[in-house]
């Protein structure tokens, strides 16, 4: 537990000092998105990596958070700080209710049901034009403001988003190493054995689904208030798959893995500007390669690889 805390502190210092390297350049803006995507990847990882339940509709919850926040503030003039929790609560309740029938399903069927859910949400964003502006998007969403400071620059947003991201990371780490986190992992490994020792697997799965939706919604609200403009295209099936890729690449069941996956997938397109249109090939390829050769993700796969290289060297030296 102490080691966890030290790791977290080291990571926080890293996050705090990172902007000094870039002096507020363009990359700062990208790093804001790394933060938002980290939150989303952690949300999905709680569900997929810990509880073992897949979702291909998380972009929908992300979008619901963004649109609820966006519409409440831009159209109805709410204060963003009020809109965010209201959005999160609404999305959480929705996920909780829909969670009961959805999480009765397993494996491929769960994947298809969540996918369907995500697509329905996406269609609603596109079709309720009066409310959301439809495919052309919703603009004029206000920035967040605290104590007279308006979060309207990349640097300010960086510290705002990463402050919240760090809180989400700590939240997830605490949860993972607790009674509830253990019960989740138990359900993942053997649902029947978990039930036999008294874990209400069904309720727990629904709870974590709702929590995951709440975190996604929060990330969505923050996205809306930093971008000030949103459109349905950001919340489609492709983004759900992108989130899945982040979690799988980083490592199922690893909080820092989610950060790695999110960072990699957010930064990669920036470094591959020339190949921009072809980023989907890279996602697809990464998914296939990771599942085939590094099913534990980067956090486990890379140390393993090093160990193997060192071992084989050691062996050679011996001979």
């Amino acid at each position: 537990m102490k080691r966890e805390l030290l790791k977290f502190l080291a990571f926080s210092v890293f996050v705090l000092l990172l902007p000094l390297l870039f002096e507020g350049g363009y990359l700062m803006n990208v790093l804001v998105f790394v933060g938002i995507n980290t939150m989303l990847a952690i949300a999905l990882n709680l569900l997929l990596g810990y509880a073992g339940q897949i979702s291909l509709g998380h972009a929908g919850f992300f979008g619901l958070g963004a649109y609820l926040s966006g519409v409440l503030t831009a159209t109805y003039g709410w204060n963003p700080w009020q809109a965010m929790p209201v959005a999160a609560i609404v999305v959480g309740c929705m996920a909780y209710l829909i969670g009961f029938p959805v999480l009765k399903l397993k494996g491929h069927y769960l994947a298809m049901a969540t996918l369907g859910l995500g697509i329905i949400i996406y269609i609603v964003f596109n079709e309720t034009i009066d409310l959301t502006g439809g495919p052309s998007g919703l603009s004029g969403i206000p920035n967040l403001e605290a104590g007279g400071v308006v979060f309207d620059s990349d640097v300010k947003n960086y510290y705002l988003i990463w402050g919240i991201t760090l809180a989400v990371i700590l939240f997830a780490i605490n949860l993972a190493n607790s009674r509830v986190g253990r019960a989740l992992r138990a359900v993942h490994d053997s649902e029947v054995a978990a039930q036999v020792v008294g874990v209400n697997a069904r309720l727990l799965k629904v709870q974590i689904f709702a929590l995951s939706a709440v975190i996604s919604s929060l990330a969505g609200s923050l996205y809306a208030h930093t971008m000030t403009f949103i459109s349905p295209a950001s919340f489609g099936f492709n983004f759900s798959v992108e989130l899945l890729t982040m979690v799988v690449i980083g490592g199922l069941g690893s909080v820092y893995g989610s950060f790695l996956g999110a960072a990699l997938l957010t930064l990669l397109p920036e470094f591959l500007r020339a190949a921009q249109d072809y980023d989907i090939i890279i996602y697809g390829g990464l998914l296939v390669v990771m599942v085939m050769f590094m099913p534990g993700g980067l956090v486990r796969g890379v140390p393993d690889l090093f160990r193997r290289i060192f071992k084989s060297r050691g062996g050679a030296g011996h001979a």
Partner: peptide
């Protein structure tokens, strides 16, 4: 039926699920 991805100690800790309430 064990919780394969967890340590031996953690497995038994899950056994105490009904004896805790957080």
């Amino acid at each position: 039926e064990l919780f394969g991805g967890m340590t031996v100690h953690e497995n038994v800790m899950v056994g105490m699920h009904t004896k805790s309430s957080s």
